[in-house]
Design a protein around this nucleic acid. Structure first.
Length: 137
DNA sequence: GCCAACGTTGGC
DNA sequence: GCCAACGTTGGC
């Protein structure tokens, strides 16, 4: 089992949209490192859902329900990009804000801080555990 | 709205 | 292959 974090701008596609829809095609990623992370996702992996920009915080947990396949939004050939599909698992009781994450010494090396512009990233098991704990979920 | 970080593009 | 210009992301 692997752990990941994906970012989304809540004004564009937030947790509320995700849960209302029940399932999301995670497409549109156009960064090689993020794409490689999408490709490494396996069925049942746990995915933290992060709201960027307006209220930066981890807001919920999702799981991988379809592994990487060619991104259907790409029209050029060859298609270098991939999509996965995610389903919501549960909302966090308390969103874990970026400020909290930055204030936590044990999360100093989390990819969210080290590579602030990456939109799909791996999370270590210990980081994942701590984030869940901070969420009171 | 501003700015830092950083990825991409294109000239040479 | 180097680097300047430029665009995008995302925090504040």
């Amino acid at each position: 089992m692997n752990f990941w974090l994906v970012k989304s701008e809540p004004d564009v596609y937030g947790w509320a949209h995700f849960t209302a829809q029940g399932r999301a095609v995670w497409d549109g990623v156009r960064n090689y490192q993020a794409r490689n992370n999408l490709s490494a996702m396996r069925l049942g992996d746990q995915v933290l859902f992060y709201h960027s920009v307006s209220k930066p915080a981890v807001v919920g947990l999702a799981t991988v329900v379809r592994e990487a396949y060619p991104d259907p939004t790409v029209t050029e050939t060859p298609n270098r990009w991939v999509a996965v599909e995610l389903e919501p698992v549960m909302a966090f009781e308390q969103p874990v804000t970026l400020a909290q994450i930055k204030a936590e010494p044990m999360l100093a090396t989390i990819a969210l801080i080290r590579q602030s512009r990456l939109s799909v990233m791996p999370i270590r098991p210990d980081e994942f555990e701590l984030l869940l704990k901070l969420s009171d979920t």
